[in-house]
């Protein structure tokens, strides 16, 4: 797809998404707009997709494994909740969340990537458990299992975002910017280097590509996406406790990206959509949902390791040929 068509399609999707919670009957279109809960779910999807984009950068583009994305989301969420309650503006908290998680990403990734493949997976696994312990035990700052409540939604240029639709638009705008940034990176020469280091790190290294540095950068950048997603998550749910940032959710982040299609640009959005919507659809079977999800993942890996987006693009390509 050429640059201008992808941009055009992206813009069109953006407009459609922006209109999703709006009652269009006034404009002669028989569409009542999403209600409060629907808008909330849509916002949650966007926030999840931002974190999943980060995972996709690490897993799909750099070929590494991260099991710490929920921990990074947690760091962003706690940081934002704590400092905005102390009166720091949201913008500062958001930037600080991204920066802090980027720096932690470097600090974790640097020693792990020196050793051998899969060490990053174990180090991030350990890090997630460690973060969860800190969230749970350090009551004086995180509130422990009681969590932090009444996190306020921010004001943007004097425009209060308490209203759910306004907050949705705010999150949508940030998602759009972050999507564009990532799109820019993966189509720049950096993206070409990512492909090279995933497919054949030995050869990439011999062509002057600093494999360790690029891998470290993708990991730190992907983690920062997690931190920024967390920064949006806190004011969205208005109450945080340690449970969504435990090991289980970190594993789910990895699974959702692979289900959507790792290494494809739209994969994280599809995967995040499934991860957010599936528990809603399967509400009647509440306890079964994780079981079904796990089986689904195993079947997908055996038959379509390219994920849903990979499968669809293969079908489209076959249609086009016949």
């Amino acid at each position: 797809m050429s640059t201008s068509t992808s941009l055009l399609i992206g813009l069109l999707l953006l407009v459609l998404l922006a209109l999703a919670p709006v009652d269009l009957n006034d404009f002669g279109v028989p569409y009542p707009g999403l209600r409060r809960y629907g808008t909330y779910i849509l916002t949650l999807w966007l926030v999840t997709a931002i974190a999943a984009m980060g995972v996709n950068l690490i897993v799909g583009y750099a070929g590494q494994e991260t099991l710490a994305q929920a921990a990074f989301v947690g760091i962003g969420a706690y940081l934002t909740a704590i400092v905005t309650k102390a009166g720091v503006p949201f913008g500062v908290a958001f930037a600080a969340s991204g920066l802090l998680t980027f720096v932690i990403g470097i600090a974790l990734g640097f020693p792990a990537l020196r050793v051998q493949k899969h060490y990053l997976a174990f180090v991030t696994l350990a890090f997630t458990v460690l973060c969860w312990l800190v969230f749970r035990n350090e009551q004086w700052i995180t509130g422990g299992v009681m969590g932090i409540r009444d996190i306020e939604r921010p004001t943007f240029l004097g425009w209060p975002l308490r209203n759910h639709i306004r907050f949705y638009w705010f999150v949508l705008a940030i998602t759009a910017i972050m999507t564009f940034v990532l799109w820019w990176i993966v189509r720049s020469p950096w993206g070409r280097a990512f492909t090279a280091l995933r497919e054949n790190p030995l050869r990439a290294e011999s062509l002057g590509i600093d494999v360790r540095l690029y891998t470290l950068l993708t990991f730190a950048l992907g983690s920062a996406y997690g931190g920024m997603a967390g920064s949006l998550y806190a004011p969205l749910v208005e109450f945080i406790d340690p449970s969504p940032f435990a090991l289980g959710p970190s594993l789910l982040f990895m699974l959702m990206v692979v289900i959507g299609g790792s290494g494809t640009f739209l994969g994280p959005f599809v995967g995040a959509g499934i991860a957010v919507l599936l528990p809603e659809w399967l509400r009647a079977w509440e306890t079964w949902y994780l079981l079904i999800y796990a089986v689904l993942v195993m079947v997908m890996m055996a038959f379509f390791p390219g994920g849903i987006v990979g499968l669809l693009s293969r079908l489209v390509a076959r249609k086009a040929r016949s």
């Binding site: 990176i185 189509r187 720049s188 020469p189 950096w190 070409r192 280097a193 492909t195 090279a196 497919e199 054949n200 050869r203 062509l207 002057g208 590509i209 600093d210």
Partner: peptide, 30 residues
């Protein structure tokens, strides 16, 4: 690199030798 085109393979082989890493992020695709 089998997934890249012949031309992309060549560009890849040269890209780390020209300009800074930051310039490669913001500059032209090739």
């Amino acid at each position: 690199f089998p997934e890249l085109t012949a031309r992309e393979n060549l560009i890849l082989a040269g890209q780390e030798h020209r300009g800074s890493r930051l310039a490669r992020l913001f500059g032209a695709r090739d």
